Simulated scan of single mutants.
Amino acid sequence: MRRTVDYYLAPQSPWTYLGHERLAALLRETGSAVRVLPMDLGKIFPLSGGLPLQKRAPQRQAYRLLELRRFSEALNIPLIPEPQYFPVAGDPAARLITAVALHDGDEAAMRITGAVLAAVWHQQRDIASPALLATLLAETGLSAARLDDSLQADVQARYEAQTQAAIDLGLFGSPSYVIDGELFWGQDRLDFVARKLRA
């Protein structure tokens, strides 16, 4: 049976970056479908007990950096734990990914998502910049019109609906993968995602 992964993400998340290409490979291997669903963690965190990074306790912030380095090395995925443009507003990129999914499909949305994530965590580029988002569209072979599309009311409504769906499902962090109603939170749960997709 061909399954679909509902892929809820925040485009500024390092954990989403660490899992993105591995998820893409898993989808190809298993012939699974995906729905790319950016969500607004700024609305989700207050409802789920989450805190923005700068409001977390110092020991939690320090351990996060340790874990980022640990996973980067273990997975052989290049990552700069404290990039120049972070923290960064994720909404512009989230709306762009949503616009691409709407107009070009989820395969294209996976491409632009990967480019956005790498821009933050490997290339130290500012994903809140419209100019940079336009460059990423060009680099991934997507229409420049998607930047204007991302500012339209229908895309904003879809982004808000995705966020509400995440809230309704009880999601609380990025990345979250939902398969047949079952939640898998975090890139370190991709082994369980693989088991589900291969079953």
Rank of each mutant, 00 (worst) to 15 (best):
I80A: 10
E67C: 08
T113N: 05
V120Y: 01
I80V: 15
A101M: 12
V100M: 10
F86L: 10
G114H: 04
V88P: 00
T98F: 02
L51Y: 07
L68Y: 02
P52Q: 12
G49I: 12
I127L: 09
T98L: 04
I127H: 01
D91C: 04
D91L: 13
V88R: 04
A94I: 08
S48M: 14
A89R: 12
Q59V: 05
L68F: 08
L117K: 06
A109M: 03
L79A: 07
P52W: 00
L136R: 09
L53G: 08
Q124N: 14
W121F: 06
A108V: 10
H103E: 15
Q84S: 07
F71G: 00
I77S: 03
G105Y: 14
L132W: 03
A57E: 15
A62M: 08
A94L: 06
Q124I: 03
P87R: 07
S129A: 05
Y85V: 03
E67Q: 11
E82Q: 14
I127E: 06
H103D: 13
Y63V: 08
A115E: 09
I112Q: 02
E107G: 13
L66K: 10
G49E: 15
L102H: 12
A119Q: 05
L79H: 10
E82L: 10
G114M: 12
G90A: 12
H122S: 15
Y85F: 15
L136D: 00
L66F: 11
P52I: 04
R64A: 08
A134T: 13
P87F: 02
D104F: 13
I77V: 15
E73V: 07
P52Y: 06
M110A: 10
D106A: 15
P58G: 04
L136A: 05
A109W: 00
T135L: 08
L68M: 15
S48H: 07
P81T: 10
F71D: 06
P92R: 02
A115L: 05
D106P: 05
P87W: 00
S48Q: 15
A94G: 13
A118G: 14
D126Q: 08
R70I: 03
A94D: 04
A128T: 06
L96Q: 02
L66Y: 11
E82G: 02
S72C: 09
Q124M: 12
D104V: 07
R64T: 06
L133E: 03
A119M: 00
S72Y: 05
Y85K: 01
L136T: 01
A118Q: 14
A131V: 12
R95L: 14
Q124L: 05
L132K: 03
R60E: 09
G105A: 10
L133F: 02
D91V: 14
I80C: 05
D106H: 15
K55Y: 02
L96P: 00
A101G: 11
E73H: 01
A131Q: 12
N76Q: 11
A62G: 02
G114A: 13
A94Q: 00
Q123L: 14
I77P: 01
E73R: 10
R111P: 02
V116F: 01
R64E: 07
P78F: 00
A62C: 01
T113L: 15
S48Y: 11
L68N: 06
L136Y: 05
L96G: 02
L53H: 08
Q61E: 03
P52E: 07
L117S: 09
R56N: 09
S48D: 07
A89S: 14
L96H: 01
A115R: 12
